[in-house]
């Protein structure tokens, strides 16, 4: 069943008295219920505008948006959506528990049901200890986790996260990533989130929507996007013999640590060959890392490959 549907959606903003700027241009796509989908694109590509149209903050100039079969302005639609904005802000004088009680009230929850939900969500996002602390003293990561909790309050079947990892340090990003994975495990939800931190999308999403200058240039699965790229590996070894060095000299890179060398290898065959030679020469494998091209390489850095794929990605 299609949960979120864009049908020829265009959004134009006035730019000066007569000029118009098109932020989203004739975008159509559908997202199946239960999917985790990432919206990818550079700044200004129309990701946030698309999300704001889904939430009814912006009215499409043309086209139609349907969430659960209804328009974004319908109250039923709002009950279906949990939203995390890019930079969530709360009234600083409120305590974490009060924030959730306030937003829960707005989401038509009350009494024991709301109290139980607040407890379980604070537990889920790891803020149980801070329930009685004012938001003013929260770190960016804590605010983000609290905002995720408020988006889950009324158990919505659709979660829309706008840049959920934006502005977080690597540890904070990992925590939010784990939290999203945990939510997906515990609840049957459709998750749509925008990001330009591509490794996060790669780790979390089943499929992606690629936007460029307001146009949808591709909708596909992550594995499909990465397919066709040769596998690359980095092998670090020590105590390799002289004959080995001579044979793979051009691929060998001396590391600062004594007797440690690294090899950048392309394809499984080359890897197997090097491993066999290494074993033969008495070398020891220190580490082996897959250098599979990230989405960032595929989409933002490699213009050549994007044209080969027949898509105008960048």
């Amino acid at each position: 069943m299609t949960e979120i549907e864009f049908i020829g959606v265009t959004k134009e903003f006035a730019s000066g008295l007569w000029r118009k700027k098109t932020a989203v241009n004739d975008v159509s796509f559908g997202i199946e219920a239960g999917a985790v989908v990432g919206i990818l694109g550079a700044n200004g590509s129309g990701k946030s505008t698309s999300i704001k149209m889904m939430l009814g903050f912006l009215k499409p100039t043309r086209g139609e948006i349907r969430i659960g079969g209804k328009g974004p302005y319908d109250f039923h639609t709002r009950k279906m959506i949990g939203y995390l904005p890019e930079n969530p802000r709360f009234q600083k004088f409120l305590k974490a528990g009060e924030v959730l009680r306030y937003y829960g009230g707005l989401a038509e929850m009350k009494g024991a049901e709301l109290s139980a939900r607040i407890d379980s969500l604070l537990e889920l996002v790891g803020l149980k200890h801070a329930q009685r602390e004012r938001v003013a003293g929260f770190s960016k990561g804590m605010i983000q986790r609290l905002a995720i909790a408020q988006s889950l309050l009324h158990s919505p079947p659709v979660l829309i996260f706008d840049e959920p990892m934006s502005g977080l340090d690597p540890l904070g990003r990992r925590e939010i990533r784990h939290l999203i994975q945990e939510i997906k495990k515990q609840m049957p939800v459709t998750i749509l989130f925008s990001s330009h931190i591509l490794s996060d999308v790669e780790l979390l999403c089943q499929s992606v929507l690629l936007l460029k200058a307001g146009r949808l240039t591709r909708q596909c699965s992550v594995s499909e996007l990465l397919s066709g790229e040769p596998d690359q590996y980095r092998l670090v070894a020590k105590d390799v013999g002289e004959s080995f060095r001579k044979r793979f000299g051009e691929k060998t890179q001396q590391l600062p640590e004594p007797d440690h060398v690294a090899f950048d290898l392309t394809g499984a065959e080359e890897l197997a060959l090097v491993l066999a030679e290494l074993q033969h020469s008495g070398g020891v494998v220190v580490s082996l890392t897959s250098l599979r091209r990230s989405l960032e390489d595929s989409l933002f850095l490699d213009r050549r490959s994007s044209t080969e794929k027949g898509a105008e990605l960048l």
């Binding site: 109250f75 959506i81 904005p85 802000r89 707005l106 408020q150 988006s151």
Partner: peptide, 13 residues
């Protein structure tokens, strides 16, 4: 301006 209205108006309100 702070954007806190977004979370409020995303609720059935």
């Amino acid at each position: 301006t702070s954007g806190s209205v977004a979370m409020i108006l995303s609720k059935p309100l």
